[in-house]
Amino acid sequence: AVSDRLIGRKGVVMEAISPQNSGLVKVDGETWRATSGTVLDVGEEVSVKAIEGVKLVVEKLE
């Protein structure tokens, strides 16, 4: 699937994400809805860990 190529890629949070609410991330110039187990603020760099349906699962870049 086209989304599989995104796993491991870096992105930037465009709309804040929390465990309760999905947000938006931009990866390779495309905007995706994303979820995370932690709070991520706009502008934070993330990496794509998995894909669930049409949402990316991301975590903060260390």
Rank of each mutant, 00 (worst) to 15 (best):
E44C: 06
E30G: 06
K60V: 06
K55T: 15
I17E: 02
L40N: 03
V2I: 15
G43F: 09
S36R: 00
R33K: 12
G53W: 03
V42M: 07
V46W: 00
E52S: 10
S47Y: 14
V54T: 14
V46E: 00
V27I: 11
G43V: 02
S36L: 01
E59S: 11
K55A: 15
I17Q: 01
V54P: 11
A34P: 01
E52W: 07
G29R: 05
A34E: 01
L61M: 11
G37I: 11
G37H: 15
A50C: 06
V13L: 03
V2P: 15
V12E: 06
R9L: 15
T31W: 11
I17D: 01
D28L: 07
S22A: 13
K10D: 08
K49N: 05
E52D: 15
E62N: 14
L56D: 01
D28W: 05
Q20V: 08
V48M: 02
G11F: 01
L40T: 03
L6V: 09
A34S: 05
E30D: 08
V46Q: 00
V58N: 01
R33G: 13
V46A: 05
G43Q: 06
T35Q: 11
E45C: 06
G8W: 02
R9M: 15
W32Q: 04
A16K: 15
V13I: 06
R9N: 06
T31P: 06
E45S: 12
D4A: 06
V46S: 02
I17T: 04
E45A: 13
M14G: 04
S36Q: 01
E52Y: 08
V42L: 12
V54S: 12
S3G: 12
G37D: 13
D41K: 13
T35D: 12
D28Q: 09
R5T: 15
I7Y: 04
L61P: 07
R5I: 12
E52I: 09
D4P: 08
A16H: 13
R33V: 15
T31V: 12
V39P: 07
G43C: 07
E52H: 10
E44R: 06
W32F: 10
D4G: 06
I17Y: 01
R33Y: 15
P19E: 07
V42N: 06
T38H: 07
D41H: 13
V58P: 00
S22M: 09
L56K: 01
G11Q: 00
V27Y: 02
V12Q: 10
G43P: 05
G23S: 01
V48G: 01
A1K: 05
V48C: 04
D28P: 01
V13Q: 00
T38S: 12
S18D: 11
R5Q: 15
E30N: 04
S22G: 09
G11R: 00
V46M: 03
P19M: 07
L56A: 03
S18T: 15
M14S: 08
S18L: 07
V57P: 00
K49W: 05
